[in-house]
Design a binder for these strands. Structure first.
Length: 549
RNA sequence: GGCCCUAUGGUCAAGCGGCUAAGACGACGCCCUCUCACGGCGUAAUCAUGGGUUCGAUUCCCGUUAGGGUCACCA
């Protein structure tokens, strides 16, 4: 067969050769050990946890090694593309501290290895498509969708493997005349790879995450170019990652089954194979069984979910980092205030299997992250959140930033900070009682104390209360108040003989708490009263007394 | 169904031929305490299974079972 002629028929306009490409995209001059990796998402506008997991891994490995991280847009499937997706993607990742050294950008490409958008690289792919055709390693296939469907049905009935191979590869060895006839008729075709693989042959392969794995040779004549001349993922992966001089490919392990084909492609094209790290998927429980987190069923897969739930980005980042490298937690404990970039990320710690996504754990991580923030940081992040999701609280916050910061300072700092907030969403119920507009009496007074006593206690306290009291004096007054009503002031004594008292100092402060905050629990009451201030405290106490009739 | 991956408590997981099998989340209990949130202490809970190899297997090998992934002109 005259492959040269076939190549001319199929790609008459292609004049460049693989050698020209090598010259245009020379090897990178980088220090020893520097990793070149990339993120290669489809511009669907949907940024998910998987993107973050993959991106975070690539980013850490690259930047820790002094290498290059670039962004390539895989828009070979125009059906799934949405406008503005690239911007959404870049901004979302930037949020999580994943920044690119080169590649597609909001304002256009950066770097010498572009274009970084696959739809702009058609000419480049065709150079290699022509090359493979000339070498007899690729051929046109004129099967229609219907043909392929029938083939599949036949295979199903015969209990054979699905796919385009062996006797099912009907265009594999067709004559030049047959091809010419189809071409002249204007029938569309795809370019298929002519596989010489045999599934009987197995090869050892070392994946950075999975370790040593077995590859079964591919015998399918897979599609290289679709009928519109755009490459499939596989072909684009080989050409792009070679020309962009990628040394490490990090991707989900759903790609593992097509790895043999990729290896085959790299070899056929004379490319050096990069290293691969195939990461296990994030799973979730679905009834009795686990399954991969799915875009359609699981809102928690989308990064926007965490934003709307009010998780700080640093919390999600730390949670994911902890899943990827479980020793991160220990490092964090030893370095509570250090920047995560100081942590030595290792591909060796990546779990070869998929991990169950643990929402409780995320909450805990987030709680710790927030507890380490300063009041100013908390205020700023909370402001961002409420601006988008809670206009009422936003208004209260901005009306008096100092007041808000004082509230957010309670129990903050020091060795054992309070951990009240796991998400920004929880801020409103936590702090609403400080604001008259949101204040409501939601909890009742302790049942063990009569209404009459409550009223008397509150009335008495109103006369004793001085905003200027320090904490000791303040509590002494509460104790004195308790004593005057016969309530125990010594909690130990009270617990030993509760029957000897109508109640304890805990009950007295409890009902003052309800009067002031409308709740049976709150942060330290002294701190709360200091922030509320004299006027508000008096007003609330008076209001409580009046409400009792 | 073919091919591939995986297998330590409810979850995330240390472990890399010899350990009373770490730690974290969650659960529960106790302590601290004006409530709460912290913090401290503690309890329950794990090597899927059957064969090998070995003086000795959670660890290495094989089978079984279970779970997962994948078999497109989607990535």
């Amino acid at each position: 067969m005259d492959f040269e002629k076939l190549a001319q028929w199929l790609f008459p306009d292609v004049t460049l050769t693989p050698e020209d490409m090598e010259k245009r995209y020379p090897e990178r001059q980088l220090p020893q050990g520097a990793i070149v990796s990339r993120m290669a998402p489809s511009p669907t506008g949907f940024v998910h946890l998987g993107n973050l997991v993959q991106g975070l891994t690539s980013e850490r490995l690259c930047h820790q090694s002094g290498g290059v991280l670039f962004l390539r847009i895989e828009d070979t499937d125009s059906k799934r593309e949405i406008p503005g997706a690239v911007k959404i993607l870049i901004e979302a990742l930037d949020h999580y501290g994943i920044r690119f050294d080169e590649g597609a950008g909001i304002e256009g490409d950066i770097g010498d290895y572009g274009p970084y958008t696959q739809s702009l690289r058609k000419d480049i792919y065709h150079v290699y498509a022509k090359y493979l055709t000339q070498k007899g390693m690729a051929y046109p296939c004129f099967c229609t969708e219907e043909d392929l469907e029938n083939m599949r049905k036949e295979q199903e009935a015969a209990h054979e493997n699905f796919g385009y191979y062996g006797k099912y590869a009907v265009w594999r060895d067709r004559s030049l005349e047959d091809i010419r006839r189809e071409l002249d008729a204007g029938h569309p075709f795809v370019l298929r790879f002519r596989s010489t693989g045999n599934p009987e042959n197995k090869h050892k392969f070392t994946d950075l995450v999975k370790g040593e794995i077995v590859l079964t040779e591919n015998e399918m004549d897979q599609v290289l170019l679709k009928s519109d001349g755009i490459p499939t993922y596989h072909f684009a992966h080989a050409v792009d990652d070679h020309l962009m001089r990628t040394t490490l490919v990090v991707r989900g392990d759903e790609w593992l089954p097509s790895l043999p084909f990729h290896v085959q492609l790299f070899q056929s094209l004379g490319f050096k194979l990069p290293k691969y790290a195939h990461i296990g998927p994030l799973m979730k429980m679905d009834g009795e069984s686990k399954r991969k987190l799915s875009k359609r069923k699981d809102p928690e897969l989308a990064l926007t979910f965490y934003e709307s739930e009010g998780f700080p980005v640093s919390a999600v980042y730390e949670y994911i980092l902890g899943i990827l490298n479980s020793n991160y937690e220990d490092w964090r404990r030893a370095n509570p205030d250090a920047d995560p970039s100081g942590f030595a990320f290792s591909y060796k710690k990546l779990n070869p299997a998929g991990s169950l996504f643990d929402y409780d754990k995320l909450l805990n991580v987030s709680k710790n992250v927030i507890s380490r923030m300063t009041a100013d940081q908390v205020f700023d992040e909370l402001l961002d959140y409420t601006k988008a999701y809670d206009p009422d609280l936003f208004a209260s916050l901005t009306a008096d930033p100092d007041y808000a910061k004082a509230i957010l300072s309670i129990g903050r700092g020091g060795k054992k900070p309070r951990k009240d907030l796991a998400t920004w969403k929880e801020a409103k119920p936590y702090m609403s009682f400080f604001y008259d507009a949101m204040f409501e009496r939601s909890d009742p007074y302790p049942e063990t104390i009569s209404q009459e006593t409550v009223k008397k206690v509150l009335t008495a306290y109103l006369t004793m209360y001085q905003a200027s009291d320090d904490q000791t004096v303040w509590f002494d007054k509460i104790k004195a108040l308790s004593e005057s009503f016969g309530f125990a002031t010594d909690m130990k004594a009270y617990k030993e003989n509760p029957q000897d008292y109508p109640g304890s100092v805990a009950d007295i402060s409890g009902l003052i708490r309800v009067a002031l905050t409308g709740r049976q629990s709150s942060p330290d009451m002294y701190a709360v009263m200091q922030i509320l201030g004299q006027d508000r405290v008096r007003a609330r106490l008076q209001n409580a007394v009046d409400a009792l009739g």
